[in-house]
């Protein structure tokens, strides 16, 4: 397994270089360093001297991919792309255009993102699997049909609607929880209840339908009949045997998501005033802060690759036939 993980990590390097290359190309196609300087300086009259000074200060005065003035290997190495990429690979995210330490900011913002994402993920997982098993239990009944219709309805509505409706109902009309905000520690529970509930509810439709289809594939297997023949209750059959055998496809979709939970939710964090990484990325894009954008894209890619490796490893844990 160790050799496999090492191989995957080595594969990840060209992938990350590629992601970085695309990020650089896309960003600088839309924003030239001069545009960035103008946006960051914020002055009404930006003079060429101001732009040049800003670029020199931030290192954007270097050539992007090919330094024609340099000699030998430096033509490639003395460029913005190589120098910035090298820093990223050593997880040195540097400073934002507003001179904030990006690494420290990411650490600080991971907590709030996880405070929403982790409970939402866990509760949604348990709820969706439980509901899906329940529907499998009552498969073919009126309850099953009506719940499937409700699931499709939930899926069809935009997540933004649930956020606004939730805020209006639970906070504005019924005054149960604050409409938005965040506080670290236990005192912050009142702020995260609503976004978690909305996150869980918005995902119920797709989640339940997906898990239901997985479990329905299992329900007519021989081992289920054997379990029933042994006299096990229908609940035990579903929640122990069917669930365990349905785990492999569930893991494919679930484990890969776990590392990316750190990245937070863009819309949810924005509407609920959660100072997480989702809103950090959006703010950086809006303010053309390339230092943050490249750091977040890089981090997202790394986490996704970690997720894929974890998924492969988890297969071996749930299915002894799988060897890495």
């Amino acid at each position: 397994m160790f050799a496999y993980i090492l191989k995957r990590i080595l594969y990840a390097i060209p992938i990350l270089i590629g992601v970085n290359l695309i990020t650089f190309m896309l960003f600088f196609m839309v924003n030239t360093p001069d545009d960035m300087a103008r946006a960051q300086l914020g002055a009404k009259q930006v003079t060429p001297q101001m732009i040049e000074a800003w670029k020199a200060d931030k290192g954007y005065d270097k050539a992007l991919f090919l330094n024609k003035e340099a000699k030998g290997l430096e033509k490639v190495t003395d460029t913005l792309f190589v120098q910035e990429s090298m820093k990223l690979f050593s997880f040195d995210f540097g400073y934002s255009d507003a001179n904030r330490n990006i690494g420290a900011e990411i650490k600080e913002r991971m907590g709030p993102s996880l405070a929403i994402a982790l409970p939402t993920f866990m509760i949604a997982l348990i709820t969706n699997i439980s509901l899906a098993l329940l529907l499998v239990l009552f498969r073919g009944s009126a309850l099953d049909t009506s719940m499937m219709i409700v699931a499709v309805m939930i899926m069809s509505v935009s997540g933004l609607f649930y956020i606004i409706a939730g805020q209006v109902l639970f906070s504005k009309m019924w005054h149960w929880v604050p409409i938005s905000g965040y506080e670290p520690g236990w005192g912050g529970i009142k702020f995260i209840i609503l976004p978690i509930l909305i996150g869980v509810f918005a995902g119920i439709g797709s989640g339940v339908r997906w898990y239901r289809s997985i479990f329905l594939e299992q329900i007519n297997q021989d081992y289920v009949r054997t379990a029933r023949a042994k006299g096990l209750s229908e609940l035990k059959v579903l929640f122990v045997h069917v669930l365990r055998n349905g785990m492999l496809p569930i893991l494919t979709g679930v484990v890969v998501v776990i590392p990316t939970l750190f990245m937070g939710s863009l819309i949810m964090e924005s509407f609920f005033g959660i100072p997480g990484l989702g809103s950090y990325t959006i703010d950086a894009i809006n303010s053309q802060d390339f230092a943050i954008v490249k750091a977040m894209v890089f981090l997202g890619s790394v986490l996704y690759i970690i997720g894929l490796i974890l998924t492969d490893i988890s297969y071996t844990l749930f299915d002894p036939r799988v060897k890495l």
């Binding site: 604050p178 509407f271 809103s279």
Partner: peptide, 11 residues
């Protein structure tokens, strides 16, 4: 920090 106008207005 209130990025969205709706929560700000309701508060």
């Amino acid at each position: 920090l209130e990025k969205e106008s709706i929560p700000l207005w309701n508060k």
